[in-house]
Design a protein around this nucleic acid. Structure first.
Length: 260
DNA sequence: ATGGCTAATGATATTAGA
């Protein structure tokens, strides 16, 4: 079973590449982030039909032209859950979380807030958002084989940053953000990428600015957090860096998890 | 230490990304 998580940075702009990627690599489930569209686009038969023609059922969660998350599955798509449970005042109602049961697995597509700068209120939002996510996934982790995957906007360790010194005063590397990831993992989740890609220089995001991708100046901020049963079933994890090349590419590459 | 680019918008600069 192949699961991919990919921040596509606008599904409208990326539609041809997303479809080509699905045809080429045949994932059973695709967890997408930053679709940057409303549910209305996915309600259009001529748009969603492109995925259905490849055998995928689609669930999307998007309110406006920011954020937006989706699950595409050809192994069933049930019990779709959009956003955090309970009451969510702004900005916690942003479309950053969707979960669904596919092929017996509980799969989450998540897009964490960026944080902007360490002094920005958005950074505090990011920290609280991680706590909300932690609370939301606890029942899933306790009851089903679960993968919480997506763009976490946090590099878990300095090995996950091309230049840790440069990022010391920025978001994505602060102790509080990393504690947010650790607290998430404390519920019973494990970051499977490093089990299979332990070396330095493994990244999932590179700035659009010139030279950054070519020089492999990137961050590993897209993660697949798995319950122990799924971690044990993982046969391979890989980043499709080829998909980051060329234009128009997303600034994130697909992260692929192959399960037995 | 800084800037470079991309996407979206009733837009021709601004916000956001990371």
């Amino acid at each position: 079973m192949r699961i991919v998580t990919w921040n596509v940075n606008s599904v409208r702009v990326r539609q041809p590449r997303v479809l080509a990627w699905l045809r080429r690599h045949q994932p059973d489930v695709a967890l997408l982030q930053e679709t940057k569209c409303t549910d209305g686009l996915f309600a259009q038969p001529e748009f969603t039909g492109e995925y259905e023609a490849l055998g995928y059922q689609v669930a999307h969660h998007g309110h406006d032209h920011w954020n937006g998350v989706a699950v595409l599955s050809r192994v069933g798509l049930a019990e779709v859950q959009r956003g955090f449970p309970g009451v969510n005042r702004r900005p916690f109602d942003e479309a950053r979380v969707i979960a669904a049961t596919c092929g017996g697995l509980r799969l989450w597509s998540v897009y964490a807030p960026n944080g902007r700068t360490l002094a920005d209120p958005h950074y505090l939002y990011k920290l609280v958002w991680f706590e909300r996510l932690r609370a939301a996934v606890v029942p899933s982790v306790a009851s089903a084989p679960t993968m919480v995957a997506g763009d976490f906007n946090v590099a878990p360790t300095d090995l996950d940053i091309y230049d840790p010194v440069r990022w010391r005063r920025r978001t994505h590397a602060s102790p509080a953000e990393r504690a947010g990831i650790a607290a998430l993992c404390d519920t019973g989740l494990h970051d499977v990428t490093r089990d299979h890609l332990a070396e330095a220089g493994v990244y999932t995001w590179w700035s659009y600015r010139p030279g950054q991708f070519q020089l492999n100046r990137g961050l590993r901020i897209d993660l697949a957090l798995c319950t122990p049963d799924l971690a044990a079933r993982t046969r391979g994890v890989w980043v499709d860096t080829e998909e980051r090349a060329g234009s128009p590419a997303s600034d994130h590459a697909p992260l692929v998890v192959d399960l037995a």
